[in-house]
């Protein structure tokens, strides 16, 4: 599904990723953990295609295609979804309008009939209830004035509606209280499926209590330095990154 080989990337000329390798198979959930500054968010942004990062070496292959040659929207339309750590506020753009535009763009791309307003409302209603999102939130401008929890739940709603093949979740647990964390985790688990892969990027173990990964990778100094099963997350939790000799300063 996703193969990253020897990925080197810089931001503002500063090296962030330094030879990262990662293989994610269909149906798997991988956790990427690492200390602050290890390159976790950069990895997410480079896969999604954000400007401001330069890939200086290596490759990203998704479903056999060269991701780095695709535009941001092409990646999205082909099933790559990034749940943002900091969802962006878009003043004046209604959440429902945006969601319908995005879902219909995907349907059009797949050669399916676009939803009309009624069909779409029905679809959203079914999905949002599970995430505790009320109709009022749908009528507000996209992410504007949303609380941290509302923003993250809105990301999960988008993921549920867009049904990506590959979901990258960038610190989706950050800034959530325990109840919101549970809702978001349930949302992620509901989307686990044999035809879908997920990369869960997180600093802490706590999300992984609810979303148990198939594999855990530790990112430090811009490389995967350790990989293992879900027990690796627990080891990190008890010993800390320093206990593994993985403080950013030591790894750099």
């Amino acid at each position: 599904m996703l193969t990253i080989e020897n990925l080197h990337a810089t931001a503002d000329g500063k090296p962030i990723l330094n030879g990262l390798d990662l293989q994610v198979n269909t149906g798997e959930v991988h956790a990427v953990m690492g200390p602050n500054g290890s390159g976790k968010s950069t990895l997410a942004y480079v896969i999604a295609g954000r400007e401001g990062y330069e890939v200086t070496a290596g490759s990203i292959t998704y479903q056999g295609r060269d991701v780095l040659a695709m535009s941001v929207e092409e990646r999205a339309l082909n099933g790559v979804f990034l749940a943002f750590q900091y969802p962006v506020e878009i003043p004046g753009v209604g959440s429902a309008t945006f969601l319908k535009t995005a879902v219909n763009a995907a349907r059009k791309h797949r050669g399916e009939q676009e939803y009309d307003a009624m069909e779409f409302l029905k679809l959203v209603k079914a999905k949002r209830a599970a995430l505790g999102i009320d109709d009022g939130m749908m009528r507000r401008a996209l992410n504007v004035g949303f609380s941290g929890g509302e923003k993250k739940r809105n990301e999960m709603l988008q993921m549920a509606l867009l049904e990506p093949s590959l979901a990258i979740l960038d610190e989706t647990d950050s800034g959530l209280d325990i109840d919101a964390l549970k809702i978001v985790a349930d949302g992620i688990n509901a989307l686990r499926a044999p035809e879908r892969a997920m990369v869960v990027i997180t600093h802490y173990q706590r999300l992984l209590d609810h979303v148990v990964p198939d594999k855990v990778h530790v990112l430090a100094g811009g490389r995967i330095v350790r990989s293992g099963g879900s027990e690796l997350a627990l080891e990190l939790e008890s010993r800390g990154y320093a206990g593994l000799g993985l403080e950013p300063s030591a790894a750099a």
């Binding site: 295609g49 929207e73 990646r75 999205a76 943002f84 969802p87 535009t101 995005a102 763009a105 791309h109």
Partner: peptide
Amino acid sequence: QLFYLRSRGLD
């Protein structure tokens, strides 16, 4: 803002 919307498949 542009990146966010494009990452959802909008051209």
